[in-house]
Amino acid sequence: MKPTPADVALIIGLALIIGTLYARYWSPNAAPPTHALIRVDDAPARRVPLHVNDRIVVTGRLGDSVLEVRDGRIRFASSPCRRKVCIRSGWMHDAHDATACLPNRVTLSLAAADPHYDGVSQ
């Protein structure tokens, strides 16, 4: 039982469609992030909306870290650490992007809005 050329064409076509669906629903930036989660030490995360341009100052172990929100993105603008890894990692803009200023014990991650329902049964 061998596939005919039309079978092969059909299978390739369907595989392309399925591949597109994987790219659409399984890529990490599928849903744009709506807010950032900022954690200092063991304190609960502070939620910062990304649609409001803002400068946020958080106080960590070494001093104040300044985070800048602009156009749905967020970055470390300044931090009292020595190597400035957090600042060099630049703007965070995809859902589940994350960076941290470890010396100052500040972590930053992006998340999409939590849906209110898992599902609706009728």
């Binding site: 039982m1 005919t4 039309a6 079978d7 059909l10 299978i11 369907l14």
Partner: peptide
């Protein structure tokens, strides 16, 4: 000539 065989039918 461009017939879809049993495998194509099954997949579709």
């Amino acid at each position: 000539p461009a017939r879809v065989g049993p495998i194509g039918l099954g997949v579709a």
